[in-house]
């Protein structure tokens, strides 16, 4: 509908609250981190302009570099292991085996339970004395393998990544909602031509859901880059900063009132996010055009 004069007044009134909140909590903050990242500031004394120095400082900090590597690992594991597993389970549940609704509900549980509760749960699971994992190891007579999983240099990061990777509900549900739109006739035609279930999944379903798989991979990568809560609660970056992430690094800079470096880390995080999103999109486009 074309707005009348009266409508225009109403529209101005209706759009203002959302616009004000958006400007206040999205536009200004992004501008803020961009600007403050160029200053030396501790929140108390006057800020001095230092140009790119904060970026150089954090880049020289081995903890920050380790954080970037860890974030890339999170992103890779999430998009290259977690998402394929989710797609596999979506293809299986899409065939509506007995009890599929129950399984779909259960797989989705970790999405509705808070990150804090999950972290507490796994901190209990990994606990070296009374945790379930070491309990299992002792029960099968391999008590010698029972270690402090989150406190040992070489196991801390894998321990964090592994428990996360098998929570597939979110991506699985996204893919399933895409799969439900695939025309059943395709499967029937393939069935008549003698294609097995696996062939049907590979040659019919997968090509049809390419865009939602792309979405999931993007989401997984982006969420991997933002990873904070679990690491903060389970290891707080330890042992020896081995599990630190970019957001955790940023958080620790805030605690030390080093706002310049903190905001430089924020800007890097935003930039890496944009690069990853555009990169994955470009990759898929490349794949599409080379096939045509």
């Amino acid at each position: 509908m074309k707005p009348t004069k009266k409508d225009r007044l109403g529209m101005a009134l209706f759009m203002t609250p959302a616009l004000v909140l958006f400007v206040l909590f999205f536009i200004i903050p992004v501008g803020y981190v961009l600007v403050v990242s160029l200053f030396k500031w501790n929140g108390m004394t006057a800020a001095t302009f230092v140009g790119m120095k904060n970026y150089v400082t954090i880049w020289k900090d081995p903890v920050f570099r380790r954080s970037v590597i860890n974030n890339v690992l999170w992103a890779l594991v999430a998009s290259c292991v977690q998402v394929p597993l989710s797609v596999l389970m979506a293809l299986i549940l899409n065939r509506k085996p007995r009890g599929w609704k129950f399984f779909r509900t259960v797989y989705f549980f970790p999405q509705v339970i808070s990150g804090v509760a999950l972290a507490m749960l796994w901190s209990a699971m990994y606990n070296s004395e009374y945790g379930l994992i070491n309990g299992i190891l002792r029960a099968i007579g391999r008590g010698d393998l029972a270690i402090n999983w989150l406190g040992t240099l070489n196991t801390a990061l894998p321990a964090l990544l592994i428990y996360w990777v098998f929570y597939i509900g979110y991506y699985m549900v996204i893919v399933m909602s895409d799969l439900s739109g695939v025309d059943k006739d395709f499967y029937e035609a393939a069935e008549i031509d003698g294609a097995s279930k696996i062939q049907q999944a590979w040659f019919i379903s997968l090509p049809m859901i390419k865009s939602s798989v792309l979405t999931c991979m993007t989401l997984a990568a982006v969420l991997g880059l933002r990873q904070f809560e679990q690491v903060y609660l389970l290891t707080n970056g330890g042992p020896a900063n081995r599990t630190s992430t970019m957001v955790l690094y940023l958080y620790k800079q805030i605690q030390n009132t080093r706002y310049g470096p903190a905001n430089a880390a924020s800007v890097m995080l935003i930039c890496v996010g944009v690069i990853v999103i555009l990169g994955i999109r470009a990759l898929f486009k490349l794949g599409r055009s080379s096939r045509n």
Binding site: M1, K2, P3, D7, R8, M11, M15, A18, L19, F22, F25, F26, I28, P29, V30, Y32, V33, V36, V222, L225, R226, F228, V247, L250, Y251, I254, Y259, A262, N263, A265, S266, V267, L269, I270, G273, I277
Partner: peptide, 30 residues
Amino acid sequence: RFHFKGREAIFTFFAAGILVPLNALMVPYY
């Protein structure tokens, strides 16, 4: 429900907000 200039621009801006890593904005929010 209304056609006006810039409505898709406004919407695109808002939709892009979904992709902003909010954790990176801890300092300004504080």
